[in-house]
Design a protein around this nucleic acid. Structure first.
Lengths: 246, 246
DNA sequence: CGGGTCATTGATCTAGGTCAACTGGCGTGG
DNA sequence: CCACGCCAGTTGACCTAGATCAATGACCCG
């Protein structure tokens, strides 16, 4: 792992939205424990079982968070993109990492040590509040993903993923185009599917005319057709077939 | 829902570990927005889709957090027990609830409004830090449960559940006894299993002699036999059979 | 004693996984 | 410029973990 204790780390940190409101003194404290990291594709950034030393901010490239069973089955939790942070919740939990993170391509990031982060946060309630909101929304995101995996079928999870991609790109009109920026196998794993099954689901949607598929480009001719694949709407009757066991 | 704006809410709050360090003025602020709630079995405390109005502390009884699909399939996330808090992460996320919560029996709890909580926290970094740690460890717990569901088989999830129960009761010796304090159907749902399948798994373990089952009482004659059901140990060779797709 | 709730058991079904072969770019090196 | 190999993706044949459906049993408690 190539680490630069670059001279301009304080400047770099100040330019990040997370830290733009910090005083020069606070930035200096953070910078003292900060490392500018350039990692190569495939490199491990944190290992399952390690204790948290600090948090990461992705400047450029993509990072995969995943866990792996003893049989080698790997399941992706999330792909972290530039501007996003990871391992920040672990600053506050004295437990070994339940996942690992790996560079999906050559990338640039900043590592901030736990102690510096905690020190600055202790003197800056605004920053702490910011992190609290971040961790809480991370919790909420994970909860929703957990729910999606437990409640919905492969096709529905796939369609929900497409909608999430559309929403994040802001284009929710008919004829919208999605260019997948990661390998399909990774997306499949995030949806708790095998690559093979994911491929079949996409083909089925393509054959139905719901989507138009060409490599990693997905075109949605009409939103309503895609939305019809979701079980949210077909409120036929509306009476729940099976009531909770309590 | 029977709500008492009891006179002694401030005293009650002060006696809770979460708030024992608060000043009288802070307790008064919290108490101003606090409600002492007595709910009856089956009653909904928060509904899927609602916006968060505040958080709850369970004084007595059990609360189920779960979500439900449009077909009525219910999946339990967690059972909250006395002394525990729920919905606290939602104070910091402006999103509708992705789950609902329901009283599993008649119960007593305290509801604290969002605005009061945020106000007191803004002036008390120690409390905020406490909540940050709480939300972060909730995140970690959910992550581990998510991982368990995605990586392990029904039998292994069941065994892991038993170990978690043992760990929380502190008795990890041979001959340990677990008395399940909730319906088996609820445990099954937390493990993402049907009640039927869970029953079969338990019976299988019983027939193997790994556990002794009598109603809701589970006896573990020897820990090592139970541990042998986990795939963590059999590091045969150690080479992963299937390498990550990256 | 009768009606809840909770749990067990059997018979059958299916979504999705596994294994294996194949395709179609795309960069690399001769 | 072509041959080669590599990697991402596709397709087909088959299998299995766990769900579903349906019936029955075991308590409790009023």
């Amino acid at each position: 792992m190539c680490k630069h204790q670059a001279i301009d780390v304080a400047v770099l940190l100040g330019s990040l939205p997370q830290f733009s409101a910090l005083s020069p003194a606070e930035l200096a404290t953070l910078a003292a424990g900060a490392t500018h990291i350039f990692a190569t594709r495939g490199q491990m950034l944190v290992r399952q079982g390690d204790l948290c030393q600090g948090m990461f901010i992705v400047l450029d490239g993509q990072v995969k968070l995943a866990f792996i069973s003893s049989q080698g089955h790997e399941k992706v939790i999330q792909v972290v993109r530039p501007g996003q942070v990871f391992c920040e919740a672990m600053l506050f939990v004295d437990q070994p990492y339940a996942f690992f993170s790996q560079a999906l391509c050559d990338l640039a990031l900043v590592h901030l040590t736990k102690s510096c982060m905690l020190e600055v946060m202790a003197g800056n309630p605004g920053l702490m509040r910011h992190f609290l909101a971040g961790v809480a929304s991370g919790y909420h995101r994970l909860l929703i993903e957990h729910k999606t995996i437990r409640l919905y079928s492969a096709t529905e999870r796939t369609v929900r993923y497409l909608f999430a991609e559309l929403a994040s790109s802001g284009r929710l009109c008919d004829g919208a185009v999605i260019d997948l920026d990661v390998a399909k196998g990774l997306i499949a794993s995030q949806l708790n599917l095998t690559q093979e099954h994911f491929s079949r689901v996409l083909r089925e949607l393509h054959q139905l005319g719901t989507i138009v598929l060409k490599g990693r480009r997905v075109v949605i001719p009409e939103m309503s057709a895609l939305a019809a694949c979701l079980s949210g709407q077909p409120l036929t009757g509306g009476v729940w077939t099976k009531l909770p066991a309590m």
